[in-house]
Amino acid sequence: MRTISMWRLISFIIIICYAASHYGGYSAVAICEMIFSMVFFGIFMMELDKQIQVVNWVWTDLFRAGIGAVLYIITSLICVIGGAGDGARIAGGVFGLIAGLLFGYDTYTIFQQIKSTRQHAAASTG
């Protein structure tokens, strides 16, 4: 649960940096990721993941984190490389790179969780 709150905080910092820059269009990734993390936070806090069994929430969270990592890294590299003279854009890009690495780590930990549950489920009881 703490990681979801951290994603909202770093996404909010990135939104502020991109909004202060001359090119505010890069804030769309941060806004989308912040909304997705708020939705997942609500789902996990209200334990709707246990009630709505149609969706595999672990895999959905894996895809959210993986797509977030890729999008943050791509947009942040674009902002850092092409942000000469725009300090807010470069700062947003640096925070975006940090967020991309954190999302990548989150993807790795979720994948390890999926891998460990599959190994436990595949073991025979006989």
Rank of each mutant, 00 (worst) to 15 (best):
Met1His: 06
Met1Cys: 05
Arg2Trp: 01
Thr3Lys: 09
Thr3Asn: 10
Ser5Gln: 08
Ser5Ala: 12
Met6Glu: 11
Trp7Lys: 10
Leu9Gly: 04
Ser11Tyr: 03
Phe12Asp: 08
Phe12Thr: 14
Phe12Ala: 15
Ile13His: 00
Ile14Ser: 08
Ile14Thr: 14
Ile15Asn: 08
Ile16Met: 11
Ile16Arg: 04
Ile16Leu: 15
Cys17Trp: 01
Cys17Asp: 12
Cys17Lys: 04
Tyr18Lys: 10
Ala19Met: 12
Ala19Phe: 09
Ala20Thr: 09
Ala20Asn: 13
Ser21Cys: 05
His22Asn: 14
Gly24Gln: 13
Tyr26Gln: 09
Tyr26Lys: 08
Tyr26Phe: 15
Tyr26Asp: 12
Ser27His: 00
Ala30Val: 06
Ala30Trp: 00
Met34Ile: 08
Phe36Asn: 14
Ser37Met: 02
Ser37Pro: 05
Met38Glu: 07
Val39Trp: 11
Gly42Ser: 10
Ile43Val: 15
Phe44Ile: 09
Leu48Ile: 14
Asp49Tyr: 09
Asp49Glu: 14
Gln51Gly: 10
Ile52Val: 14
Val54Trp: 10
Val54His: 04
Val55Thr: 15
Asn56Ser: 12
Trp57Lys: 07
Val58Asp: 13
Val58Pro: 02
Trp59Thr: 08
Thr60Met: 14
Asp61Ser: 14
Asp61Cys: 08
Leu62Val: 09
Phe63Asn: 05
Phe63Val: 14
Arg64Glu: 02
Arg64Phe: 11
Gly66Tyr: 00
Ile67Cys: 09
Ile67Gly: 06
Gly68Glu: 07
Gly68Val: 07
Ala69Lys: 05
Val70Gly: 01
Leu71Ala: 15
Tyr72Trp: 14
Ile73Met: 12
Ser76Ile: 08
Ser76Val: 06
Ile78Glu: 07
Cys79Leu: 03
Val80Gly: 07
Gly82His: 06
Gly83Arg: 02
Gly83Thr: 02
Gly83Asn: 02
Ala84Ser: 15
Gly85His: 02
Gly85Lys: 01
Asp86Ile: 02
Ile90Gln: 01
Ile90Cys: 03
Ile90Tyr: 02
Gly93Met: 02
Gly93Arg: 00
Gly93Cys: 09
Val94His: 07
Val94Arg: 00
Val94Ala: 13
Phe95Met: 14
Ile98His: 01
Ile98Thr: 13
Ala99Glu: 01
Gly100Cys: 03
Gly100Met: 06
Gly100Glu: 01
Leu102Gly: 03
Leu102Val: 07
Asp106Thr: 10
Asp106Pro: 05
Thr107Val: 06
Thr109Leu: 11
Ile110Val: 12
Phe111Glu: 06
Ile114Trp: 00
Lys115Trp: 07
Ser116Thr: 14
Ser116Asn: 11
Thr117Met: 12
His120Ser: 13
Ala121Phe: 02
Ala122Phe: 02
Ala122Cys: 09
Ser124Gln: 13
Gly126Gln: 10
